[in-house]
Design a protein around this nucleic acid. Structure first.
Lengths: 340, 340
DNA sequence: GACTGGCACTCGCTACCCTGGAGTGCCAGG
DNA sequence: CCTGGCACTCCAGGGTAGCGAGTGCCAGTC
């Protein structure tokens, strides 16, 4: 029992109207707004069918229909035509991103841009460490038994960590070690560094083995154990937009979820494979976020992906617009990173 | 017409009860709850007086009384006894802050801690650049005409910036310049660096003047023009707490204000002079935040102040508890920074 | 067989009224 | 200066009625 053309039209119309008005849509209004060639009664029959199939539902007997998660899913997969961005929007994006001075700035601008363009909550993951490679390692003597390790990645991220040494060092020695570790590690992907670090310890001059072990331990910790990826968030005020009122009562759990970085990461971080992902309502694993939809994608210079970004909003969002905004922003950010 | 002792007691009781119950407090209930030696009628007279003086008001004729901003102000200045933290709270603070691996981590932990302890929205400013001094400057060649400048401050902040050079350099030269700028600038407070940077350009070997100017320009920009201080935020979910409902309708403007870094800075950043600042309702300059109160203070290693932190909540907050939590957290963070 | 018009029915929403209770202001008396 | 009492105000909550939108179903038409 496949859905015939007209039933699909009806579903599409319901989704579009509901997204636009935030109110259950009835058969009569639907026929009028969309100049359908059939009568309201016919549409009612189609609606009854769509309801049986689980694509729409009635909030109460004798109210209009509202799409279900399943209905949105079908809409997104089959019914929505991609809405290209207006030239004005494109320009806005470009203007907003140009002039960023460093990585922090890029990320902040991006997340605010995304929130503004989509009118929803935006999340941007900083370029992931494990997908970046090392551009430079720096050792700075803080005292005779403490070093500061600074790592700079090709995506512009900087991480630093204090190293406690078992013995004292002088500047010449620090300098020598710096040279060695840079030789061995620069250009390597972070995910492949552990073996090289091991090699460092194995090959080092025996007189320096204690020190090198300390450094290696901190390096490993910095590079690998640190899953603690950073995120930026913007647009939480959009959660309170007028017309999102029944959403309103549930604003609390959403804000709570958004404060958990781990949750955010799950949300938009692992968007590795698919080009763009849409998770609707209950498709979300995170319990607090049932009732919201997430549109996310990866970004990065060229074809490589170094991080994720996306937006979160009520299931009744404007999917075509959101999808094109998210992918456009990801594309522009990728270009920015490629230049830098 | 100074307020006599009993009137002050009445005001204090009104504030405490209102903060506890979130409901207008009437004369009878007040007498009972606080075992006052006088009758309700007497209290009513005092209330009428306090109302004339602008310390309390009635939401509607024949409802109980509610403190005004002015009433809270008097309460905070004169009537509240400081509530010392419980040992459990102290331990919680310590446990929460111990184990932070880097500055980012310290700031994040602090802001979450503060939000959790006070049950309000917390804001922490990263150690301010202009109040820090330079620990180390690093130059990394990215290509033959581009350098990456990395600055590390004594508070652990790291800033980086790309420098475009007018001519090519080799590694030896980069290294020489690195040595020079470190000699001249390490240990200097950022606010006093501009003259030293100028000196650098003036004294440099003429063959390198072009390059040094580029570097100096970027340095100046990084150090001075960059007012763009960073902030961390947590606890926005607390805005939706039950019992904060009339606060509820106005949640939107608050979230909006909180997304403006500039606003946040004004809020808690400039807490330079006074040890601890409480701004109540309309005392706030920021229009969106009328109706909220802000408790903020500075923090830093030892006696120096490198940044601000604070919380924001409804005017009907528990001031004594909030004040002691904010100052305790600031003190602990200061100690952490002093050790690092 | 598919579509249409009509009709009875359901049910949420709003407005309205009413009453109960809490709280006040004021006054006369201690 | 304080107290008890009293009349008054006004919010909150609950119950009711009417309205309107929308549905499901049925008989009729192309």
């Amino acid at each position: 029992m496949p859905l015939d053309e007209r039933k699909l039209d009806v579903l599409r119309a319901i989704v579009e109207d509901y997204v636009a008005t935030q109110e259950p849509v009835g058969s009569r209004a639907l026929v009028e707004r969309h100049h359908m060639r059939v009568s309201a009664a016919t549409v009612r029959n189609d609606m009854a069918f769509l309801e049986d199939e689980g694509y729409i539902r009635q909030p109460h007997t004798s109210a209009g229909r509202v799409p279900t998660d399943r209905g949105y899913r079908l809409f997104v997969d089959k019914l929505s035509r991609i809405k290209p961005l207006s030239p004005a929007e494109r320009r806005a994006i470009e203007r907003f991103l140009i002039g960023a001075v460093d990585l922090d700035d890029v990320v902040h601008r991006t997340v605010r841009l995304l929130a503004q363009v989509t009118g929803q909550v935006a999340v941007v993951q900083y370029p992931s460490l494990s997908r970046s490679s090392i551009r430079h390692l720096e050792l700075v003597g803080v005292s005779t038994t403490r070093l500061l390790l600074v790592m700079i990645t090709d995506t512009g991220r900087v991480e630093q960590r204090v190293i406690e040494l078992p013995e004292t060092v002088d500047d010449a020695e620090v300098s020598a070690i710096r040279t060695v570790i840079n030789e061995k590690l620069v250009g390597k992907r972070l995910s492949e560094t552990p073996i090289h670090i091991q090699a460092l310890v194995d090959e080092v001059d025996p007189t320096r083995i204690g020190m090198m072990s300390s450094i290696a331990a901190v390096l490993l910790e910095t590079l690998i154990e640190r899953t603690d990826e950073r995120m930026a968030l913007a647009g939480t005020a959009n959660l309170t937009r007028a017309g999102v009122l029944d959403f309103h009562g549930s604003i609390r759990p959403i804000l709570e979820a958004l404060e958990e970085e781990v949750v955010l990461l799950k949300l938009i971080g692992s968007a590795g494979e698919e080009p763009l992902r849409v998770r609707i309502g209950d498709e979300n694993e995170i319990e607090h976020l049932r009732g919201t939809s997430v549109v996310s994608t990866g970004y990065g210079p060229g074809a490589t992906i170094v991080g994720g970004l996306g937006v979160l909003g009520p299931t009744r969002m404007d999917y075509p617009a959101t999808i094109s905004a998210v992918s456009a922003v990801a594309r522009y950010v990728g270009e920015m990173l490629a230049q830098a």
